[in-house]
Design a protein around this nucleic acid. Sequence first.
DNA 1: GTCTATAAAGCGATAGAC
DNA 2: GTCTATCGCTTTATAGAC
Lengths: 195, 195
Amino acid sequence: MAHVPAQERRKQFVEAASRVISEKGVSGATTRAIAQEAGAALASLHYVFNSKEDLLVELVRWAADFNQNVIAETPLPAGSGVATAARTILLMWRSVERPLVFSQFDILLWSMRTELTKNESVLLYERMVEQFGNLLEHAATPKERKSLDFKRLAVRLIVICDGVQFGTLCAGPDYISDAEVVDMFDSVIKTAVKT
Amino acid sequence: MAHVPAQERRKQFVEAASRVISEKGVSGATTRAIAQEAGAALASLHYVFNSKEDLLVELVRWAADFNQNVIAETPLPAGSGVATAARTILLMWRSVERPLVFSQFDILLWSMRTELTKNESVLLYERMVEQFGNLLEHAATPKERKSLDFKRLAVRLIVICDGVQFGTLCAGPDYISDAEVVDMFDSVIKTAVKT
DNA sequence: GTCTATAAAGCGATAGAC
DNA sequence: GTCTATCGCTTTATAGAC
């Protein structure tokens, strides 16, 4: 293997770990399997990471960043309305490839049981609620902005995203259609009003 | 350890495995940890199970049965209306203790990657949709029975259950309130009409 | 059906040459 | 920064006495 800067090598190992986990789970993700997937020697992994746990912690953060970016990069014109915005987010969310979703759920469960990453993952959810809420509020019409509770709306959107993702992972791509997902959220918008 | 019939020992190991997985995940669930949790010698585990995989397969089925029973044992008077029925199911679902939910998600992800159990888990979701649908239809008023699409409704209910469970696991018990969950499903009922 | 002891394989991590 | 080779430990699984 050619020489590669340590910074870049780290990224290669993290992405390799994600692919291995998507296939075999965290329980099957050995350092040997990850190194092979990255096309590097086992010793190279320990050259750039102090331990296997360090690598997984970086994967947790990489996965969290990925999620944040999926949302941040969603194009949402201001004033286009909450329904349109939610539709865009939902479909963007669903377009993430199955293997990646698989590893995301697995590594998230792992992080919840790891002292070093537990709090970060809890914070990830809080930040996601905030981010979704801001996005929806930004896209809302003036009338919607006055009446809707955007934090409630954000939680509802995430609940639907998670439920759809997990169900689709288990039951297959025909579990629920795009139109049905959008329809579900449309129904849920109307009652998320300020109290 | 006293002599215990093999049939009963199997159950003890399966339940011990569930507890260990809820704490450490599938990746941390070693045969030694499971045997210790069950209060038995490691050799006893291999006396009643051919392999560790066999034990996990039985755990997958045990978890699936548990889910089916949670639903089956939910008391739902006929004609009480879909909203009441859904409310009862949602709250029943949420009452499952956190450690059990934790291990259920973990073992379900594991089963999806295991050739022997993959198809069973896909079938579990199909059966759940059917079971939820029947339950809701049974509880429906005559008017609802004519207008509502119970399969669509069942999928929506499961999406919300999964999303709420996973989010609560990650973000904590304050992620979403019971009232909000019920309100969400109420909103979603109205638009799940026959096409 | 229980146990202790151990085999055989795989694991994370390191040494040391290049 | 890369590699091969190997250490020390843990893992699953088995042998054999009780």
